[in-house]
Design a protein around this nucleic acid. Sequence first.
DNA 1: TTGTATGCGTTATCAA
DNA 2: TTGATAACGCATACAA
Lengths: 351, 351
Amino acid sequence: MKQRQASLADVARLAGVSAGTVSRTLSRPAMISGATRARVHAAVDRLGYVANGSARALATRRTLTVGAIVPRFGSSSFPTMIQALETTLAVSGYTLLLSAPEYPRSLEPAIVRTLLERGVDAVALLGAEQAPQTFSLLAAHRIPFVLMWDLDSSGGDSIGFDERSAAALVVDHLADLGHRSIGFIGGRAAANQRARSRFRAVVENAARRGLDLCEQALLETDYGFREGFEAMQTLIRARAPVTAVIAGNDYLAAGALSALDRAGIAVPRSMSIASFNDNEFAAYLHPALTTVRLPIAAIGEQAAQYLIARLAGERPSRTGPLEVELIVRSSTGPAPRQPELTADGRVEGTK
Amino acid sequence: MKQRQASLADVARLAGVSAGTVSRTLSRPAMISGATRARVHAAVDRLGYVANGSARALATRRTLTVGAIVPRFGSSSFPTMIQALETTLAVSGYTLLLSAPEYPRSLEPAIVRTLLERGVDAVALLGAEQAPQTFSLLAAHRIPFVLMWDLDSSGGDSIGFDERSAAALVVDHLADLGHRSIGFIGGRAAANQRARSRFRAVVENAARRGLDLCEQALLETDYGFREGFEAMQTLIRARAPVTAVIAGNDYLAAGALSALDRAGIAVPRSMSIASFNDNEFAAYLHPALTTVRLPIAAIGEQAAQYLIARLAGERPSRTGPLEVELIVRSSTGPAPRQPELTADGRVEGTK
DNA sequence: TTGTATGCGTTATCAA
DNA sequence: TTGATAACGCATACAA
């Protein structure tokens, strides 16, 4: 019973045709007469034949496989992007080869080499935390690739949104409501390209609107509930003179809201909160939470479509940044309004 | 400049040796003399040679690739499992081929066929929402596979935890605190094997402890913040006579807590909340939230180790369910205590 | 419409 | 230690 898997030759023998005919029957049925086609299919079913992709790849020089390098899979919006990427690729027959390196590994060229050995037809890079060598390797092997999330990087085409306009939406919103002094709880700029540009975008926009973004209220931490909770506690304890806080992502927002709740500080009466919405769940955290909805799934979809086009020999024109949307949920609760400051500028509720 | 990638033959020519020697130099350097080894490596570097995995797979009959089928990637704990799976596999040189079908597609046999064509050496199935045919196909092709999450399924080995003991931990905790009547907000049992067994586990344990789990307080919904929010609102409006509610996962817990907050119902004074902790973030939602920490990352790791062992020709013994842990955060807030009931048995705070 | 023959790039077997 | 040669399974150009 230890027989190997059925091959094209086995099918051909059983069907009484040549191997070439079987191959054609499976790939271009139109070329084959109805009678033999039926015989071949019968043999295929009977033997449970499944094509050997390695042999096919060797002969055709394509694997119908796309590689993805995804740093920091866990607490990010990358799974959503990957889902969209994979689903869209699958429609066109492509399979996704996933590499989810934990932090320092994402800089190892070995990852790209593995992908190249596997013969991926294209590569998707998420978050652009790769070594420069990655790009030269891909270029040297003429593998089309796309950068997801980050619009600024050079070297290849990229699909993403503009952090500056996203930040502008939130900051403008808060400024228009009358806030003059705000805080920001964001990811670690030192360790994370995305956190860095978001950080910068908030700072620049605050400056543009003349908002006070005091150093004391500018916190960097890991993305996470606990981190958001602790960061907000820090702000509260320090009595940071702010009337609104922007959270860098959903996790931070959730933690921050929880900390405010625990401290008895009412949102939005005593403190306004806004958040970048990576995971599309910040929206449901609090009825008065303003969020910027980032086009996460759309990035995955469009990146897939870009690669598919490239692999079809087209040269898609560069698309602009994907649209970012501000969600103000005034309908599900009181809209953020001019905060009531205490005499000394402290936030109400800090004791 | 349109030359194809360098092949083993190219390297051999440049190094002045045979192709076989190059192959051996790369795979079993010990067999080769220092001098030729150096020459070969020089040629490899010079040409930027990368092995062709398809040809290697064809010759060796192994791809060093493991397939994973992952339904409902988005709002689940699967990304964490995948990260652990991939990381552990990578250490042993295996790459992950990811299939993340949206719902109905997970039942298509075409997915498994694609994986088989790609020549995966093994397959990991997450959440066991696959068609029965999946298992027979894998068996017919003698592909080792492992079921992740679900311990009960038959057909292959599985790595997971026991929903019943997880539920027992929470229910016992609430019962010991003196709660007599509780509610449960869980996932949709009809659409989701995992939600179903969790549901059942809670019901059975409640019965075992003589807790009242009235139908009115037994809600099924999609996993999500909004859904948890709305479910809890439903309970509040219906004035469900419960003093504690168990949330089926983190998202539901977050939404439920938000709804309680909005309704002015104090946790845990007027209502106790406990939650299954798929994503390890429920822990930070509320200082008095009791959670069952599910061994998500451990499942990914152990599944990888299981497959690696199988692929090495071993036959690992069945391991029992992974450990589940109850986290009571009394240190970060008041522990849930005997709730104060109103005269007519209503929960305090519902108006 | 179908069969034949060759090549894809690697590993493995057997000699030298 | 190294070289020659034969698979591995499929696709395709060419012939029939």
